[in-house]
Design a protein around this nucleic acid. Structure first.
Length: 219
DNA sequence: GTTGTGATGCTCT
DNA sequence: GAGCATCACAACA
């Protein structure tokens, strides 16, 4: 399964859901930084009032959202950088926002980059990019199979339960603000807006026994 | 623990 | 010049 297939052979919401439990890996100046994807959101193009494609169509800024499936769409909101992966065929501006990671490799570097510890490392879209040390849009428009930032599709941790809910942070009252397009691993403490008592500190929401900040796979 | 608000940088009209 | 797919903190209960 290559990226082009993975990001185009199912409805965008299903792809976003399937991304949970895969590992995001960034080969940067600080070495390999990586983490399990524990939270995603789907954005459904020009019909979706929350999408960057809504209302304006294609602009210079959002051009890469219209690219091939598996293209990186890196954008800025306020003073933070966020990461989308483009889904569906070229010309269809669907995207999947990576909202949170459970760090596996390079925790020390992430702690340094963020100036925070534990669950504050990567429990939000702006935070996780800061943790990885990405502070500009240089990766925008790159194909993931050639970029230093990739999702490892060859292995996956299995969430015990996946919660579906409305997306975070959009204008209330907008028609699409209630669409159930946010997906996250139930009980994982790195999911944004998680309350302490909802976190499952025993298994972090994964079916296997592996502990939170431990080494990743055998890949 | 929960809610509100101000800082922030860049794009598009 | 408005408006954001955010974050961190302060204030309150």
């Amino acid at each position: 399964m290559n990226y082009r297939q993975f990001f185009s052979q199912a409805p965008t919401a299903d792809i976003a859901r399937n991304l949970l439990g895969h590992e995001l890996m960034y080969q940067g100046p600080q070495g390999l930084l990586a983490g399990w994807i524990v939270e995603t959101e789907a954005y459904l193009g020009e019909q979706d009032t929350a999408s960057h494609a809504y209302g304006r169509g294609k602009t210079a800024y959002s051009a890469s959202l219209y690219g091939e499936p598996g293209t990186l769409y890196v954008y800025q909101i306020r003073s933070y950088i966020c990461l989308d992966i483009v889904a569906q065929a070229s010309g269809i501006p669907h995207g999947i926002l990576i909202r949170a990671l459970e760090p596996t490799q390079g925790v020390k570097a992430m702690t340094h980059n963020r100036g925070k510890t534990r669950f504050e490392l990567s429990n939000g879209p702006g935070k996780l990019m800061q943790a990885l040390g990405i502070r500009d849009r240089k990766l925008d428009g790159e194909a993931m199979d050639k970029a230093p930032l990739q999702v490892n599709l060859s292995c996956r941790r299995e969430p015990i339960q996946i919660i579906t809910g409305p997306r975070i942070g959009m204008r209330k009252g907008a028609p699409s603000s209630n669409w159930p397009l946010r997906f996250y691993v139930a009980g994982n403490p790195y999911v944004s807006h998680t309350r302490r008592r909802d976190a499952n500190l025993k298994n972090y929401g994964w079916r296997d026994e592996q502990d939170g900040i431990k080494l990743s796979s055998h890949a």
